[in-house]
Write a protein that binds this DNA or RNA. Structure first.
Length: 694
DNA sequence: TGTGTCCGAGACGAA
DNA sequence: CTCGGACACA
């Protein structure tokens, strides 16, 4: 192999290569220059990345010169574990392997001055965003019910990811709704800056700006990270792309791995055109296609290939089976959602009773959060253990959010959202009217309320007692931070905080029922636990590192035990990406649900098709796809019919009178009894294997 | 300050 | 239908 490398790299084989196929080896051993690895579902993507890292190390690359970015903490953790098994824990820990967001946070902390932000900036999580947005909308007198805070936040995030300023967004606004949101955008940004807080998008945007505006800093990082790898490249958004380019454009040692067919986060700003255009952005890029699938039976891959071929915007590729033939894919219309649930759950129970499978081998996948209800009821009725993913409830609990607000305030007294949350918690005689007056004054002065109080400026004309109480609270928090900070004792500081504000009293005040009180107080204890853990595992633990860890890797450790539990999995298709199960039930395969009516109406059918493809390809040995002919929607019985994707997959002709989602439902039951026929494509899983409910 | 009631919405959700 | 949030009222 070529060694345009500075010096000292001698090509060296590593034992892990032996078990790879030739494409995988190719991807691993192409060290230099841009590499695009198109890794279809189940083709050993993670294996390629981890082996590639091991390979680089074996060639003499130093671990700290490798940057590997992922989108989730879970992926980062998994990758580090696997690399650790190959090259040893210590070496693996020296690699910069993190999510985009924590990488950016790290860069920004070291270069805060260069871009004019506080070194100790705090982060604004989605709950903070939401309360900030509500207050912005109120302040701007946006007619009520015109703009939902969550919708505004989502749109603003998209604008930010397109590098649009509020002014440009306002110019481009095409309807009154967008105009309102663009105005809110402007005020939202002003408030973030005034509070000296960054939201998640800002982490990326400020890092990008840093690299674009400060060539010295950019050069430093670009030189340091000679070897860059990106996982799930199909999910990158504009700023992430820009950051990668800034780091990689000099040496071009950028290896991206992904699958355009599994791009399902367009609504969140992911831009599939980045993976589609990689060869154009990096001329001469080596493209490696991983097409051998080690996960699923040929029957399952046939339906997956048949469906995804219908997409226009994609890199051409096909999954090729490595496994032996198995059972046919089953397509199953059922009467309504109750029947769907009882059939699927009954089937699981029966199959489990044969004794060859565990409960955790089964997954029920669906498009929307309302669907699992019927399945849950049925699983409970039959006493089958199940787990339902999602619901990050811990950080939504009142007591946890309160404590978080106190801690953020200690770190950053300018954080007005947090201040307003706890100003009167526990009650200290600061009513709504006084808060409004103080806020008005702060706005006049152009500073955050916390700063106004701490500096004791311009307080004339404000109600004395509330001002005094607020100031005292702030001063005490600042003093506590000072003491705890110098002692370097994070846990002691948090205990001190709970004492200082007498939070126990607050919990007792709010919940007089002893059981609820217990549960609530438990949440407080849990935060302390987190802090203990953090202090133990983090070298220079401080309040700031703790807060950042809470915001950037919020997933609790309970989740890992949950993974191991022997229980049937219920999850959305989005949550299932990257996972695999021996037996998969893809339910609610209906026009209107998948493709979702709203997506279809907005012309995003290709992404919905990818979602169905992700669903199919989760299955290892058995795939059953079901839909209902009638479903309760908004309290009414609604007629439904099989998804267009069913017809696309099986090549069965559309029945007469079939209607796409988004249109009015047909007057008569949409699909008639189907008989087997129509063999236009040879998917082994089709008509012959379909069966009907008796 | 807390509780009850009415209203509206109802896609996916990491960091 | 069912949940959550906002608001009104005590």
């Amino acid at each position: 192999m070529k060694t345009g490398l500075s010096a000292g790299y001698t090509p060296r084989r590593i034992k892990h290569l032996a078990t790879l196929n030739s494409q995988q080896k190719d991807a691993v051993q192409t060290m230099e220059g841009p590499v695009l690895v198109l890794a279809g579902a189940g083709t050993g993507k993670t294996r390629v990345i981890t082996t590639r890292i091991a390979y680089l190390l074996a060639q003499g690359v130093r671990p700290e010169n490798i940057l590997a970015v992922t989108f989730t903490n879970k992926a980062a953790r998994e990758m580090r574990d696997r690399v650790g098994k190959m090259v040893g824990k210590e070496t693996a820990n020296a690699i910069i392997l993190s999510t985009f967001h924590s990488f950016c946070a790290r860069v920004l902390r070291s270069n805060a001055d260069a871009i004019g932000i506080r070194k100790n900036f705090t982060l604004c999580d989605s709950a903070d965003q939401s309360s900030l947005m509500k207050s912005v909308l109120r302040e701007l007198r946006v007619p009520e019910k015109q703009v939902q805070p969550s919708a505004a936040i989502a749109r603003i995030s998209l604008w930010k990811n397109q590098l649009l300023t509020p002014e440009k967004a306002l110019d481009a606004a095409s309807d009154p709704w967008e105009e309102y949101v663009a105005r809110a955008f402007r005020r939202y940004e002003e408030q973030l800056r005034r509070n000296r807080v960054l939201d998640f998008d800002d982490l990326l945007l400020f890092a990008l700006r840093l690299f674009q505006e400060n060539e010295t800093v950019r050069k430093k990082y670009a030189k340091h990270f000679q070897w860059i790898m990106v996982d799930e490249y199909q999910d990158t958004n504009g700023p992430q792309y820009g950051i990668l380019h800034a780091l990689a454009k000099d040496h071009r040692n950028l290896c991206v791995v992904g699958d355009d067919d599994q791009s399902i986060y367009g609504w969140r700003g992911a831009d599939v055109s980045k993976i589609l255009g990689f060869e154009k952005d990096y001329p001469g890029a080596k493209v490696v296609r991983l097409e051998t699938n080690y996960r699923s039976t040929p029957e399952i891959l046939n339906v997956a290939n048949a469906l995804i071929q219908q997409n226009i915007q994609r890199h051409d590729k096909e999954l090729k089976p490595a496994l032996e033939s198995g059972v046919p894919v089953m397509w199953l219309p059922l009467f309504d959602e109750m029947n769907e649930a009882s059939y699927v759950v009954g089937d699981i129970r029966q199959s489990h009773s044969l004794g060859e499978t565990r409960w955790k081998d089964y997954a029920i996948l669906f498009r929307t959060q309302t669907q699992p209800r019927a399945f849950e009821a049925e699983l409970r009725r039959l006493n089958i253990p199940y787990k339902i993913s999602g619901t990050r409830s811990f950080f939504d609990r009142k007591e946890v959010r309160d404590l978080l607000a106190f801690m953020k305030l200690m770190e950053n007294p300018d954080d007005e959202v947090s201040l307003l949350r706890i100003l009167n918690v526990p009650p200290r005689g600061i009513g709504k009217t006084s808060v409004d007056k103080m806020l008005e004054k702060a706005t006049e002065e152009g500073v955050a309320l916390g700063r106004l109080l701490l500096e004791q400026t311009a307080l004339t004309g404000l109600p004395e007692k509330p001002v005094k109480a607020s100031t005292e609270l702030l001063e005490e928090l600042v003093a506590l931070k000072k003491r705890g900070g110098s002692a370097g004792d994070l846990v002691g500081m948090i205990r001190g905080l709970i004492d200082l504000v007498d939070y126990r009293r607050e919990v007792e005040r709010c919940y007089d029922d002893p059981t609820t009180l217990d549960i609530r107080w438990n949440g407080v204890a849990e935060v302390v636990n987190f802090a203990e853990n953090h202090a133990r595992t983090t070298p220079k633990a401080s309040l700031n590192t703790f807060l950042e860890a809470l915001a950037l890797d919020a997933d609790d450790q309970e989740e890992e035990d949950e993974d191991e539990r022997d229980a049937v999995t219920l999850m959305t298709l989005h949550a299932a990406k990257g996972l695999e199960f021996p037996r998969v039930y893809l339910v609610g395969f209906e026009e209107g649900l998948l493709p979702h009516a709203r997506s279809a109406a907005e012309g995003n059918v290709e992404e919905e098709r990818r979602l169905a493809y992700v669903g199919y390809t989760r299955a290892q040995r058995m795939l059953t796809v079901t839909w209902a002919e009638q479903r309760t929607k908004w309290g009414r019985q609604t007629k439904c019919h099989a998804s267009r994707f069913y017809y696309e997959t099986t090549a069965e002709p559309l029945p007469d009178g079939w209607m796409a989602s988004g249109q009015e439902p047909p007057p008569r039951p949409a699909h008639k009894k189907k008989t087997k026929t129509g063999k236009r494509r040879a998917t082994s899983s089709r008509a012959s294997s379909r069966k009907r409910r008796s």
